[in-house]
């Protein structure tokens, strides 16, 4: 089964971004094919240089580095969302592939299960 997660939450405003990642990792741990699309404020999860310990929180940026160990290799980021937020590819984790609107929509079309968080 091919899962596409739409990750829309900024990392530290609520616990939802972290709980969404827990769901992503659980899905991969159950041998499902997982694709991720960071979009809207979710692109801030990819921001480099996070120091979440200043908020006594777990660091989302660090957890993203575990994706490869979970065989999560299809990581995408919405270019429009980056642009609206003044970010460029230099600001974000290099493992994410930046894609345009048509590609975002195509991802949704070809996924078996889309989960929007």
């Amino acid at each position: 089964m091919k899962y596409l997660y739409l990750l829309r939450q900024a990392p530290y405003q609520s616990s939802l971004a972290r709980e969404a990642l827990d769901m992503v990792l659980a899905t991969a741990a159950f041998d499902q094919h997982v694709q991720l699309l960071f979009i809207n404020d979710g692109v801030f999860q990819l921001q480099k240089g996070q120091q979440a310990d200043l908020l006594q929180q777990k660091n989302i940026e660090k957890t993203l580095q575990a994706f490869a160990l979970y065989d999560i290799n299809d990581v995408y980021c919405c270019s429009h969302s980056l642009q609206l937020r003044g970010l460029t590819t230099d600001n974000i984790d290099a493992s994410a592939q930046v894609i345009d609107q048509a590609q975002c929509q195509a991802l949704i079309q070809q996924a078996d299960k889309v989960i929007s968080l």
Binding site: A29, A52, K58, N59, K62, T63, Q65, A66, L69, Y70
Partner: peptide, 12 residues
Amino acid sequence: QQFDISPEMRPF
């Protein structure tokens, strides 16, 4: 330390 998550079997 590296990932801020506890180890699970397969990734670990």
